[in-house]
Design a binder for these strands. Sequence first.
DNA 1: TTGTACGCGTTATCAC
DNA 2: GTGATAACGCGTACAA
Lengths: 332, 332
Amino acid sequence: MKNIKDRVTIYEVAKASGVSLATVSRVINNNDNVTETTRIKVQETIRRLGYKPSALARGLATNRTTNIGIVIPNANYVYIANMLNGMTDEAKDKGYQLTLFVTNHSKDDALQMVEKVITSHVDGAIIFDDELDVEEVNKLSSYKIPLVVINNNVIAERVACINFGYEHAIRSVINSYFEKGDKKMYFLHLHHSGRLLQRIEKAFVDTHVEAMRGYGIYSIEDSYRQTYSDFMEIFKSTHSGYFLAHRDSLAAAVLNAAIDSGLRVPQDVEVLSIIGTKYASILRPHISSLHIDLKEVGAKAMQMMTDLLGEIEMQHVHKFESTFVKRDSTQY
Amino acid sequence: MKNIKDRVTIYEVAKASGVSLATVSRVINNNDNVTETTRIKVQETIRRLGYKPSALARGLATNRTTNIGIVIPNANYVYIANMLNGMTDEAKDKGYQLTLFVTNHSKDDALQMVEKVITSHVDGAIIFDDELDVEEVNKLSSYKIPLVVINNNVIAERVACINFGYEHAIRSVINSYFEKGDKKMYFLHLHHSGRLLQRIEKAFVDTHVEAMRGYGIYSIEDSYRQTYSDFMEIFKSTHSGYFLAHRDSLAAAVLNAAIDSGLRVPQDVEVLSIIGTKYASILRPHISSLHIDLKEVGAKAMQMMTDLLGEIEMQHVHKFESTFVKRDSTQY
DNA sequence: TTGTACGCGTTATCAC
DNA sequence: GTGATAACGCGTACAA
C-alpha cells in the first residue's frame, strides 16, 4: 500500500522513549497528568526524531479538523482578496486553516463544491457565493456543518448570517440625485454576478419606478478591457449619464472611456462604484462608491464561525450597512 | 468521545445494502470488479442515506489527501490574488483543494506555518513566501513533501522551482534610461518585502555603480496612503526623479502625489511599477511596469505540482522572464 | 465477484 | 502517573 514508509508515528516515539503511546499523546496535548521527567524525556525524543502529529489521524479520532472551508466564486477580485485577508488574520489567532472551494461563478461547480465541503470534513464553512441557493446551504446544514453565510439569509441550527445593506444606500443616493442632478441613470448589468447585484439592480429599478423616472440598463462583460472598449463605442453617441458599476475596475472602465472620449467627469459623466475598495481612492478621478470594509467582513465572518464552533452565545445575524462615500466621479 | 454521532459511514451503507463494506468501497472508487446489479444497489442506498466518504479516513488509509498547501505572505495583494486564481483553476481540473498558510511577512509565523504544513498532511506545498529560507524549505523537503518553490532556488528531490527574471529587465530599463534620460533614479525600499525585492534593489544599485551614476533610496511604508503623504512632503523640495516602486498601488501613490504637487508626469516625475498587474493600465496615467502574468505563474506552479505528484517527467526549473511594458508614466 | 481482516496514526476510556 | 485497548472511517491484500 505504502511503498515509502517514512512518517514518524507516535508509536515510534513511544518505543524510543520507553513509554506507551498513551503517554506520548498526553505530552503532545499538554495533558498535565504526566511526570515532569517523563515529559521532558518524551519531548526530547520527539525533537530528536522530528515527530509531527498527523492532523489526519487526529481529526479522525477527535472528529475535528482545524479546517474551515471557504466557498467563493473567485479568488481574483480585490474585494474577495480583502475578505480572505480578514479571514486569515482572524483564523490564525484561533488556530484554524482555510481551505478554498472556488465555484467560478458556475452552478455546476458550486454543487460539486458542496459535495467536496462535506467530504473534506471541515469544521465549518463560510459561504460567500451567489451561486449557492438556500437549498444547497440547507443541504450543507443538514450535514451538521456549522455555516456562516454571507449575503444570503438562511435560518437554521448552527448557521449564522452576514448581510450587506446596499439597498438603503443605493436608494438614498438615487433619490437625492433626483433632487439635484439631471442625468439619466444607467445600471451596468452583469451576467452571473449573483443575487447581491440583482438585489441592488432591483432597488435601482424600483427607485426609478417609484419616482416615475426613466432609466437605462447596459449589459456588460465582467472585464475592464471589454467594458472600456464598449463604452468608447457608447460615448460616441451618448454624451452624458450617471453610471452605476459593480466594482472599481468596471467603474474605472467607464470613467476612462468617458475621459478618453473627451467627456468631462463629473459634469458630463458620473460614475458610482457599488463595491468600493481602496482603488476607489487611488484611481483618478477618485471614484465615488458605496463602502463596506470587506476585510472587516471577513474577520467578522471568521469570528462568528469560531463562536459557532465554540458554542459561544452570539448574535446569529449581523448586518454591514454600506455608506456612500462621495468622491470626484459624482457631483453630489 | 463523540456525543453527536451522525455522519453516515461506509459501514451503514454496507449493512443497508446487504453487502460488505469492501464492496461499498469498490463502488465508491469505481473499482470495476463489481457486478452491475450490486453496484446499482449500493449506489442507490448511498444516495438514499446521503453518504459522503470521509476524506480524513480515506487520507489516513491511502496516505493521500487531495490537498495542497499554499504558503503566501498575505492574501491581500492583487498579484497574489491573481496567482491564487491561476492555482485554483488548475487545481480544480485535477481535483485538488488548496489550503492556505499565511505568514503575514513574519518569520515567526512562517516557521509556525512550516510546522502546520507538515502536520496538516497536504500532498504537496507551493511556497511563495520570502520569509522562508532554503533552510526551512529543506526541512519541508526532508519530510518528503513535494514542493514547488516560487522565487527561491532550491535543488532537492521532489522539489521544483519557478523563478522570476526581473534583474535582466531592470538592468536593461535602467541602462537604456541612462542613454536617453537625465533624471536621478530612486528605489523605493520596503522593509520585510523579501528576497525578490532585495535582489531587484541590488540589481538597481549595481547597475548604477557599474555606470558610475548616483542614485537614491527611499524607505517607505507598505501602504498607499502613507506613501502618498510621504511623497506629498518629498515633492515640496524635490521636483523631479525617476521612481521604482514595488507594485502598482505604491507606484500610484508616487504618481498621484506628483500630480497633486503640480508636477508633470513623465516630464518631471517618472514612475515604474516593478510587479505590474492589470491596474497598471487602469490607473491614469498608465503606469509603466515590468510584467509577469501571475495567473499564469500560479497555473504553472500548480501544474508542476501535479506533475511532481504524478511522478511525471518534467523540467524542475521554470523561469518567467519579465517584460518591460512602457506606458505613460515613463518617457522611454 | 464478494467478504474478512488488518492497517493507517491518533484520542480517549478504562484499568492498574 | 501510566499502560492496554477500543474506537474513528476507509482502503486493500488475501481468502473464499
